[in-house]
Structure formats: structure tokens, C-alpha cells
Design a protein around this nucleic acid. Structure first.
Lengths: 222, 222
DNA sequence: TGATTTATGTTAACCTTAAAGCAACGCGAA
DNA sequence: TTCGCGTTGCTTTAAGGTTAACATAAATCA
């Protein structure tokens, strides 16, 4: 959850972005909150990011995006419940998180964007730690010995760090995304499958960028 | 379950977070509960965390998140729709289902009842078809080649029927529950593991009763 | 019944963060 | 190269979380 200042800033952000369809600058935020210096805002923004309420591009101006805000006064006000409907006090809201389903992933092929760009997966928030997450559907059997099967849905936590042995979404040469076990050898990076039929592939450090780390798995039998 | 004080604090937490969309500080909790010192709160919070009702970031201010609270009466009762702008704790409409966590299951041992008899797992209702379901935690590696690992949570749909190849919860001789692949040979029932280190076991038809069929799987990586 | 454990309280010291301010620095876009 | 903006380092103060030590009543165990 949030501290009071974080809450205040998040609400300002939401209002500003709703009105202007653009992010405020750090100075505008500073003024709105009533500070004398931007660095305080910087820290609040970092806090919001750490707790998974916003997402941003580093070193980019006005590049803040709200990805979660349970304080829906704005929404509530703008549609004051025409259908007489109850304002749902989503207590369960604190217990579930909506993750975007970004597509499918397999060995050796780019992520294939999912047909429905608004597909979401709602999972119990106890399944994820803090941070930003997304979901992917697994295609193929290259990780079968790690218990990851064709058709499974995996939950990925966004990060650019990985340590040896982590199962990560790695982007190779900027276009090929793959779910593999990560290992850094002295001067190269090894991506290994969990299936003897696939060979370990080696890359230079800057051929590979980490997109996230495996954080959960969901499977349906039918 | 919870102690009375833990219950009281959890309800206060829920109310506070609902109203303020931010966590209370330890001092605010101390005052709400009526203690003279924060350390008591600290202990209660630890208890709530240990029992899985909340989650928190260590050493971070106001960073408590409720992930479960079976006391949903709170909202429903306290505003029994009088104040026209009703607050409903709409668990059902939120497309989630609460499944009871009945315990653990392993090859060759009875289901071990879980310490907290009211443990629930909330899952997106899209994960299950119709029917009654429950959840179990897997112990051991006897089904590892079916991608079911130690520590996974499986979702079981209650049924007494099974066809060859189904993965089922089978109760043997009335006391030993086990998750295995089901096969009916001419006059006997075979329960086979998905791990070459375990042998297939054979039983007479009336030694075995089916308790349910594997319907889903959830895994958390950490 | 006596011993032990568990839940709960309290005080007080201690350590870590949050928050605010100032200023210098760095990066991108025009 | 400038201008608009984000980033960082450093300092100070207050807020907030963590612990150890000690105490008591109730519940449980032996």
C-alpha cells in the first residue's frame, strides 16, 4: 500500500493525466504537492513505481503511466452510477490483480501478440510480490523438464536483472523473445532449455536483454 | 484462524485502507486498538502476515496490503443497504471463486489436514468449469513428469468418475489419499506415478474411491 | 496441580525510511 | 548549444518500523 504522500501524488497524477492526456513534469508535481524541490517528487515517484502503481520510462520526460489506482473517486464522480448501481467496494480488489496477457512465447520465435489486446488475467495478489507483472502463454515444450508445458500460462515479473539459474524472458538481438534458463558465463550469456532436445545457445552480453523473470505458473486441465 | 486481537486489527486495517486507500502507520493502529505501545501492533501484524492475511514490505512505511479477509460481513452488515449508496463486498461478481485449501497430498500418505482449516484460495473463475472444487498442496515428486512439482497447488474438481489417463485424487482403502494417473484394467485399478522411481500400484475396484479429478495447477516461483 | 506455552501489554532504545531542501549534473529535443 | 526536464548526492529532521527485556493472565500439558 501507499504512504499518504504517495497517495496524494498518485491522485494528482491521475487527475492531471485524465485532464491533459499527458504526464505532468516533475516541477508541476512539485508545485501541486507544494514542495520547494523536485527531488522529493523523485523519491515519491520511485516509491509508486516500486509498489507497482505506475510505470515509467527512465530518463524520459513526462513518461509516467498509471497502471493501478484503487482510489477511484474520479471514475466514480464522472459516472455517478447511472444504472443506480452500487459503488462496488471492491474489498476483493485488494486481493486480486489484473495482469495484461501480452501474448505467447516460445523458443525461437518472437512473442506473438495476442489477438485481443485487452486480454487480462486476474489473479490473487498473493501470487505475486511487488513489482509489475504480465502474463504469457507458453507454446512448445522447450521447458518441459522445468514443469512448464505447452499451453501453460506463465506470470512474469518485469525486471532487467537476472542471476544464474533464473528462468527469464530474454530478448535476443532485439526481436526474438524466448523463455529460458539464464546463465552468465565469463563473457557470454547462455540460454538453456529444460529439454535435452534443445541445445543451449550462447550470446554476447549485449545481444541479450532480460525482459522479466518467471514468477508464477497457471495451468488448466480439461 | 485468527486471535481476537488479530481479527480486530485486520478489520481496522480493512476499514482504514478502504477509506484512505493507504495503509495506517503503526501508531495509528496502536491508537485504534487502544494500546500504549507499537510493539504489540508489531506482533499482531507479524501474526497476520504469518497466517497469510496480509503482505508487507519490510521496513517500509505504510506498506501493508490485505490479501485475504474472510470477514466479508463487515461491509455487508454495517451498511445493510440503508444508505442508498451501498457498499457491497461483491466477491461473487468479481469473477473469482474461493476454493477451500483442504491440505496437502503426496504419494503414499494420507492427506494431511492444513493447519488453518479456513484457508482459502481465490482464483479467477475462468480457471474452473462448473462443479465443486477444492485445492491441495503437492508434497513430493511422484508426478514430476506430468509437470506437477513439489509445492505446487492443484485444483481438484470433485467427482467419482474417472476415465483412463485422468489424473485423480484416489482414496485407497479408505485412508490413503494420493494423486495419481488412473487406469482401469480388466478387473483391477492401476494408479501410476509420473516418475520412474515409483512403481505402479494395483488395487481391486472396491479398494479405491475417486475423490476428484485434476483441474488446474498453480505454482509460485520465488 | 505445577510447569510450560501462548497471547497480550508495556517501556525504551535503536535503526531505517520518508520527506524536504539545495545544488550540481546529465540527457534529449529543438 | 540552449532549454526543459529528469537524476543524484548530500544534509537534516521527523516519522515510522524493529527489538529486547520484562510482566501477566489464560490455556495447555504433564
Amino acid at each position: 500500500m501507499l504512504t499518504l504522500k504517495q497517495r496524494e501524488l498518485l491522485d494528482f497524477l491521475q487527475e492531471y493525466e485524465f485532464k491533459n492526456k499527458a504526464s505532468p513534469s516533475f516541477d508541476e508535481m512539485r508545485e501541486a504537492i507544494g514542495l520547494a524541490s523536485k527531488s522529493g517528487i523523485h523519491r515519491l515517484i520511485s516509491g509508486l513505481e516500486e509498489r507497482g502503481f505506475i510505470r515509467r520510462l527512465a530518463n524520459r520526460a513526462r513518461a509516467i503511466e498509471i497502471i493501478k489506482n484503487n482510489h477511484n473517486d474520479l471514475a466514480a464522480k464522472s459516472h455517478p452510477d447511472k444504472d443506480n448501481n452500487v459503488v462496488k467496494a471492491d474489498f476483493s480488489g485488494s486481493a486480486h490483480i489484473e495482469l495484461p496477457m501480452l501474448g505467447r512465447i516460445a523458443a525461437g520465435t518472437p512473442i506473438e501478440a495476442i489477438s485481443d489486446p485487452t486480454a487480462f488475467l486476474s489473479i490473487p495478489s498473493s501470487m505475486v510480490e511487488s513489482g509489475e507483472h504480465y502474463a504469457l502463454e507458453i507454446v512448445g515444450d522447450s521447458m518441459i523438464e522445468a514443469g512448464i508445458h505447452d499451453g501453460d500460462t506463465v506470470i512474469i515479473r518485469k525486471t532487467e536483472q537476472a542471476i544464474n539459474g533464473d528462468i527469464v524472458v530474454a530478448l535476443v538481438d532485439g526481436y526474438e523473445a524466448t523463455l529460458k534458463k539464464f546463465r552468465r558465463d565469463s563473457d557470454r550469456i547462455a540460454l538453456e532449455a529444460a529439454n535435452p532436445n534443445y541445445e543451449t545457445r550462447y550470446f554476447t552480453t549485449n545481444q541479450v536483454s532480460i525482459q522479466g523473470k518467471l514468477s508464477g505458473l497457471i495451468r488448466k486441465y480439461r
